[in-house]
Design a protein around this nucleic acid. Structure first.
Lengths: 355, 355
DNA sequence: TTGTAAGCGTTATCAT
DNA sequence: ATGATAACGCTTACAA
């Protein structure tokens, strides 16, 4: 079976060319019958079923999705454009989306944009998804401009996941950075801290946008709560900048000017923990510290006090919405939803010791 | 533009149906010319180029890959079947493969098998990739049986990534667990440790196969090096089992029966570090500890002594091989390669103190 | 219930 | 260099 049949002079494809007609011939039925059998929505007489099944098994037939999509014009595959798979956030998101897709009997096809901020690369990824003629598109990526996106996806159901902005024509499910920041702040204030340092990128550089937002909200909420806040700028992710930040924070702790340090990601918190340890500053005895994310493998092991982002819910809602859009032929209203995480207590945050 | 044109009674697809003929009409050329322009391999006169480009821009045309693949019979897209994206190892692998694909001017289409060991789910994923008629397949997943795989992919270039076994008809690029274990053992012995506990799953359960292998090699190399090895069985990943393991190890340390503890993954190491801390056992003062992987975000921050798996090289070789297979029409010999990682020094491993 | 045949959107061959 | 046109493998009215 599946013999190379390039006697006809056509270029030998790498592919075994067992097609639906091969199956049909083998089973002494028409391709239409095979198609119906495969589709399952149209009744097929039992003896015929059996013949077809045998033929499929015997020939090792595998349906050609490209032809199917072409003929059908629609597809129950949803395309996922995802940022950097090497990142716990996107990893979990990807994983949960896969689960959600299965629940809705949808297929998920993923295109990852390689690391390194590059809106253009992401456009290519998006285009490739569109070329697949997927039935819907999920965008979980930082840098592609919403306007460009909305122009691209004019005709296919689309949901943007986890971006802080809303767009008039794009469905979005996002993370409520304000509320999440509030969770941290409430916990910190409840521990009696009043003199607090917040470190974050003070400019809203692309790629640092979210951390900028978080830092801004942390600061605002703290001040609203009556705390005395010192901010330290962390302009980039470069080791030099991070080290400078740590030095400043350690300095503030030594001078007893702060009793808590707030960071805008768990990686940042982790970095500080290490720097503190090396500098002989104890956490939480000398200073409490909090992060943001709750997604790092081992977060609980390490006892990080942080906000756990609701990635699972993000994925679930995103998939639900895309599903609704895909089944409804009518045009649903554009939706904007926002999700709040939960505070994750940890050993790095303790009540302020009476001094 | 892109008006819904279902006056013809056909079901309105969610898709804007701007096709190549629309572009051709707009540009007053034939579809063949548009196709050639898009392909880029056949010269097209400048004035024509301009017309076509304009028409494409004006209509917002996006090529239908399904039709392309159907017509061409081959594709420069390689399908990736990947295990659980929510796992640093697979995350990095995915990321690096994406990079490698770009280098070879290949496209990468990913299907993730949702978490939870389920060979059948993985078969579905594989089938879906085959249905796409991708030009090559990369399998980075634990549980699918090689034999089933080889039957499936009889006619499409395939490379299996990171599985410890070889298969007569399947290309594989794997991790040299024996050599990696040796790296750890050499470092530990060089630090003067002679009484050592190794914890690992003693049965080669599916999914724990690799850790079983690592533990076995660690033990063997240690004994070959003259060390006195105690093994502790960690039959599963359940919290109860892990806790029991930690308790045993802590006990051995307190009794001064061992000066080093070896774990078969960094997560396990992390778990032990926490348990040790809670039990008042200091690392590395009371006991040195090593892990395996080197992929956890923050590995260096935490100072884990471990083996860094060569995931980047794994991805690069895998992509190179699949590329070669895809361009060569002839049948290349089946290849089996094996990659060694590098030892990552860390604070959790120190010279044995003279007691 | 099953078969026939006309597309689906591209590519590629063969003329021109 | 460009234009007709026959595949490519499958779905789906429409007939039987």
């Amino acid at each position: 079976m599946a013999e190379k049949k390039n006697d006809d002079g056509r270029p030998a494809s790498a592919w075994s060319k067992v097609t639906m007609s091969d199956v049909a011939r083998e089973a002494n039925v028409s391709t239409a019958t095979v198609s119906r059998f495969l589709d399952g929505m149209v009744p097929v007489l039992e003896p015929t079923r059996a013949k077809v099944m045998d033929a499929i098994k015997k020939t090792g037939y595998i349906r050609n999705e490209a032809a199917t999509r072409l003929a059908r014009g629609t597809s129950d595959t949803v395309g996922l454009l995802i940022r950097d798979p090497n990142n716990p956030y996107y990893g979990i998101l990807h994983s949960e989306l896969q689960l959600g897709a299965a629940e809705h009997k949808l297929h998920l096809l993923t295109v990852a944009s390689p690391p390194g901020f590059n809106p253009q690369t992401e456009s290519f990824g998006l285009r490739r998804l569109l070329e697949q003629r997927v039935g819907g598109i999920l965008v979980a990526t930082g840098t592609i401009a919403p306007d460009e996106l909305s122009a691209f996806v004019r005709d296919v159901p689309t949901v943007v996941l986890g971006r802080p902005e809303e767009h008039p024509t794009l469905n979005t499910v996002s993370l409520d950075e304000e509320a999440n920041a509030k969770l941290i702040v409430d916990a910190v204030l409840a521990c009696g801290h009043r003199d607090i340092v917040v470190t974050f990128p003070q400019t809203n550089h692309s790629g640092l946008l979210i951390e900028h937002l978080r830092g801004t909200w942390l600061t605002r909420h703290l001040r609203d709560g009556g705390a005395n806040v010192i901010t330290v700028d962390t302009p980039s992710l470069s080791p030099a900048d991070l080290e400078a930040t740590h030095r400043q924070v350690v300095g503030l702790v030594r001078e007893r000017r702060v009793s808590a340090a707030l960071f805008t990601s768990d990686m940042k918190l982790l970095g500080f923990l290490k720097a503190a340890q090396e500098a002989g500053v104890r956490v939480p005895e000398d200073v409490s510290a909090t992060g943001f994310d709750g997604l790092l493998p081992g977060t609980e092991l390490l006892g990080l006090a942080t906000v756990r982002l609701p990635v699972e819910a993000l994925a679930r809602r995103g998939m639900e919405i895309i599903h609704e859009e895909m089944v409804s032929d009518g045009t649903l209203p554009v939706r904007h939803e926002s999700l709040v995480g939960s505070f994750l207590p940890g050993r790095t945050l303790a009540s302020r010791l009476p001094q």
